[in-house]
Every structure is written in structure tokens, then in C-alpha cells.
């Protein structure tokens, strides 16, 4: 029921069911809709504590009703992801909307998060259904297999799914310390079997400056 209207607008047809979307991202709708604020990071008191501690507080609203609702955010490109019981890891700022049936949570990412400019925590989406993620420019989908690990610039990483292990790798050498670095001092290394979404643009990161 998620469809793309152009590459930058997400249209969701609702027939009495609901969808979770980034707060304030609705641009238009027809039919009857109600908007209610939720908060990310899981449900209940535990979710609230998690949000406070992790700073990964994506404010989410639940949209329900009948008709078609259109979402867009700052003219970002939108990518649809179908989940079949697997887990999607995505930066909270890149998640636009998910099916109401999908569970969202927060996980610790370690050192990588600090370097990618997104904090130490990331959002997970789990279950069966569809999710829409945003990227600055059209994202490419790169496959990782056990034989072919993938290195990604922390600023260009937006999401990944599948059975992947991630390590943070640094290429700091003498030149970097002298201020003659190539601007590619840090990478995230993905190993295993899965998919990584990369955007053709880089957020401002610590790694990008050295």
C-alpha cells in the first residue's frame, strides 16, 4: 500500500488501518485522517527511558483513517523497503514512514555512530511490512556477501538490513596527523550477508574533516 508519487513523495492508501510516519511529514491527504503523536524507541516506560538516554528520539505520529495520505520531507528522495520478518537498521533522521505493524526500537552502534554524526544509537525496524527511508539524492543498494565485504563512508551510510556485522575502521596515518589527509580517514566495514543503502551525499562528520 506504499507507493511513490514521483521520487520524492510517498503516497499511502489507508483503509481504516494505520501508518507510522515522521512527525510533521504529511503534505496532503484526501479522505478522513487523524494524526496522533507517538514516540520512537519502543513502547511503554522502558521505551521512554531508552529515548531519554539514547537521544534517538525520532518523533513519530500515527496516521489512521480512510483515503490517501501523502508524505514528503525536505525534498529528500524516498526508497521503499519491504521487510519479511527481518530487521532494518536505519538512522532515525532517515526514516520517513513504516507500516503500523512494524516494531521500532533502538540499538547501540558503538564507535561508528559517533563518527557518522548520528550519535551512538540507531533505530531498528522489525517485522513484516513496508518502510520508507529517505536519502539525500537517489540511494544505491549494495549487496554484501561473505566473500565481498563492503566499506562505506560513515556520512553516506543510511541503512542496512540482513545478517551483517559492522566494524569501524580507521585509515589514520602519518599524513592525516600532518593535516594532509584525504578526507577518508574512517569507514564502516560490513561483513556477512545483506544489503546496505548508501546515499550520494555526505553528512558532516568528524571523519570527513580529517
Amino acid at each position: 500500500m506504499f507507493r511513490l508519487q514521483g521520487s520524492k513523495t510517498l503516497a499511502v492508501d489507508l483503509t481504516g488501518d494505520g501508518v507510522k510516519a515522521k512527525n510533521g511529514s504529511m503534505v496532503a491527504y484526501d479522505g478522513r485522517m487523524t494524526f496522533k503523536k507517538l514516540s520512537g524507541g519502543g513502547e511503554g516506560l522502558r521505551g521512554m527511558v531508552t529515548r531519554r538516554l539514547t537521544g534517538e528520539q525520532m518523533t513519530v505520529m500515527e496516521v489512521s483513517g480512510q483515503g490517501t495520505c501523502y508524505f514528503a520531507d525536505r525534498a529528500s528522495e524516498i526508497n521503499l523497503v519491504a521487510l519479511h520478518g527481518d530487521k532494518l537498521y536505519v538512522e532515525a533522521s532517515n526514516l520517513l514512514a513504516t507500516d503500523a505493524g512494524l516494531r521500532t526500537g533502538t540499538t547501540f552502534t558503538g564507535l561508528r555512530g559517533g563518527a557518522s554524526g548520528n550519535g551512538l544509537f540507531t533505530t531498528t525496524v522489525e517485522g513484516t511490512g513496508q518502510a520508507a527511508i529517505m536519502s539525500d539524492g537517489a540511494a544505491v543498494l549494495l549487496r554484501v556477501t561473505p566473500q565481498y565485504p563492503l566499506m562505506v563512508d560513515p556520512g553516506a551510510y543510511i541503512a542496512h538490513q540482513g545478517n551483517l556485522q559492522q566494524h569501524f575502521q580507521a585509515g589514520v596515518n602519518f599524513r592525516t596527523l600532518m593535516g594532509e589527509g584525504s578526507g577518508e580517514a574512517f569507514q564502516i566495514r560490513f561483513e556477512g550477508d545483506g544489503l546496505v543503502y548508501v546515499q550520494p551525499s555526505e553528512r558532516n562528520t568528524v571523519g570527513g574533516d580529517v
Binding site: 514521483g6 520524492k8 513523495t9 512527525n23 510533521g24 511529514s25 504529511m26 503534505v27 496532503a28 494524526f35 496522533k36 503523536k37 518523533t59 505520529m61 501523502y70 514528503a72 520531507d73 525536505r74 525534498a75
Partner: peptide
């Protein structure tokens, strides 16, 4: 302060078309 960010909407009715941009800027 716990709004969904969608407190105000323009309601258009009648016969015609409206153009909507993919951004809130």
C-alpha cells in the same frame, strides 16, 4: 507540546486541482 505537527491544514473543496511540493520549506 505533544502535537503531531499537523495542527493546521488547508481544506480544499470544489472542482479543480491543487499542487503540492515534496517539502515543507
Amino acid at each position: 507540546g505533544r502535537g503531531s505537527g499537523e495542527a493546521f491544514q488547508l481544506e480544499l473543496s470544489g472542482n479543480g486541482a491543487v499542487y503540492v511540493q515534496a517539502s515543507e520549506e
